[in-house]
Design a protein around this nucleic acid. Structure first.
Length: 110
DNA sequence: TTCCTGACTTCGC
DNA sequence: AGCGAAGCCAGGA
C-alpha cells in the first residue's frame, strides 16, 4: 500500500466483495467516510475495469440496478457475471437485492 | 495551471 | 411526495 488514497480504499473494499453478493456505491462511500462520494466510487471502478480482478460487476447503485454495465465493453457481461455467481438479474436489476446485498462495514467489523 | 466531467447519493424546497 | 441542486476526489484537456 502506498499513500492509501481514497481510491485505494475503494479498490480494497470492492476486491473483498464475496461471490454471489453485491454492494452499492453509497455503501462503499459511506464505509470510507464520504457518503456523497458515491460518484467517485463509480469512477474508481472505471479505472479498475480491465485492470485487476476487481469485481466491479458486483457493484450496483442504491436501487440494485446495473448502472455501469455499459462500461464493461459488453452490457450483458455484467448481468451474466452476476447470474453466474447466483445473483438473479432481470432487466439490469438485481432481484432479491436486499438478500444478496453485502455490507462492507458489517463484514469488515467483527 | 485551471476548468470540467464522471458507473451516485442526499438534502432542500 | 416529487423534483432540483449540491457534494465528494481524481484525472484529462
Amino acid at each position: 500500500m502506498k499513500k492509501s488514497t481514497w481510491l485505494e480504499q475503494v479498490y480494497a473494499i470492492v476486491c473483498l466483495i464475496p461471490p454471489g453478493r453485491v454492494t452499492t456505491y453509497g455503501a462503499i462511500a459511506q464505509c470510507i467516510g464520504t457518503s456523497k462520494g458515491a460518484r467517485m466510487v463509480g469512477w474508481a471502478l472505471n479505472q479498475a475495469v480491465g485492470r485487476a480482478d476487481l469485481p466491479a460487476h458486483r457493484v450496483v447503485n442504491s436501487q440494485g440496478i446495473l448502472t455501469g454495465k455499459h462500461h464493461f465493453g459488453n452490457p450483458e457481461r455484467m448481468a451474466a457475471l452476476l447470474q453466474q455467481e447466483g445473483v438473479d438479474v432481470v432487466n439490469d436489476q438485481v432481484q432479491n437485492f436486499q438478500k444478496v446485498f453485502w455490507d462492507p462495514q458489517k463484514e469488515l467489523e467483527p
